[in-house]
Design a protein around this nucleic acid. Structure first.
Lengths: 193, 193
DNA sequence: AAGTAAAACTAACGATGTTAGTTTTATTAT
DNA sequence: ATAATAAAACTAACATCGTTAGTTTTACTT
């Protein structure tokens, strides 16, 4: 039964839907095939391997994350932009944790297209940092600091590492962002000398 | 062949050695059993499940991480202690990445003993923060900020997310710690008012 | 109407964690 | 020293996983 209308894009989207609704850990090629009313082996007519599928899903996640970040900083600059960016990042990780996890599983070692994805991750924060008077080297460092803070909060909260104390994690995160802004402003002063 | 001298502790230690030397992803109960010269099914005379084994390994990793942190801050206070703590944390994650990964896979949802492990993770940074004039709530937030920064750097560098720019990741991390210290000092001023 | 290529199928392989039931060993009690 | 017991090994099997090989069916092209 060579069914028509079963495209690669549709398969990937179905996989994304399943991962978002039922979790990454319970996802398998056989479940995906079942949802598409085909056998698992038939998937290999559309994809080369499960790695390839996860890579595609990772690309999707990165582009979604980039999208919410760019729309969050639209029309904003400096500290206001930083706060909006952080808020968008945090909300994405909290609202779509399963898809977010896929990003990290991306084999960044690989070549070609992954390079592009790497810049998609970096672009929003680099744009915001462009609003400050900083050297290129400072921007490279600060971009990493921002991503570390945000990823640290998201992944640890998701893992349940932040349950110990009765204070809101969102508040903790905003405090971290305040510290990050302090660091940017401090770096700006150093750059002026 | 009911071999003598095959204790639960020895099995766990063997698993740790294997994970550290050959990586978490290539570890399996059958490989572990092979190294111990028994069959995989026989492992179940000593452990209840692979989850239990990973939990034990996670406890080990947490205690090791706590150890290096506590020895790093011995005799130090305030910013010097923060920097030493961060340095020890970063080095641990970099030198023992496979074991570090197990910590996060710990099912923090669970009850009882995991609670203790949670406090082992928090204790060193809370000790250092004790050297500042901060409210309890500030300490709770700042402890999370510290852990997020450190975990963010370690896990993203390990995942290869920091390959884009030709500046040292260690330098980026030290910059983040400087920002964290700025945030602490800033919080201290607010607490005094 | 015949040919071709895409896309489905069945069947199987090796690996994973795990369980049930059996046999061996080491220690304890008689 | 011998018999009983409990611990710890065994074999065999199950379901699930990703994946491959080879076959059959479908839909489009000539």
């Amino acid at each position: 039964m060579a069914r028509q209308g079963l495209t690669r894009a549709y398969i990937i989207q179905t996989a994304i839907d399943m991962i978002e609704s039922e979790g990454l850990h319970s996802f398998s090629l056989r479940e995906l095939a079942g949802r598409l009313h085909i056998k698992a082996a038939s998937l290999y007519n559309h994809i080369q391997s499960s790695d390839e599928l996860y890579t595609e899903i990772g690309y999707y996640a990165i582009s979604e994350l980039k999208k919410v970040q760019l729309s969050a900083i639209a029309g904003k600059v400096r500290s206001e932009a930083v706060e909006a960016l952080a808020d968008a990042y945090y909300r994405f990780g909290k609202q779509r944790p399963e898809i977010y996890k896929v990003i990290l599983s991306l084999p960044m070692v690989k070549n070609d297209a992954i390079h592009k994805a790497g810049f998609d991750i970096v672009e929003p924060i680099m744009t915001v940092l462009g609003g400050y008077r900083l050297t290129e080297e400072q921007k490279m460092h600060l971009q990493r600091v921002f991503r570390s803070i945000m990823h640290g909060f998201i992944s640890q909260e998701e893992a349940g590492c932040f349950r110990q104390y009765p204070v809101g994690v969102g508040d903790s995160c905003r405090m971290a962002v305040r510290g990050f802004i302090l660091l940017i402003e401090n770096s700006e002063k150093e750059a002026e000398i």
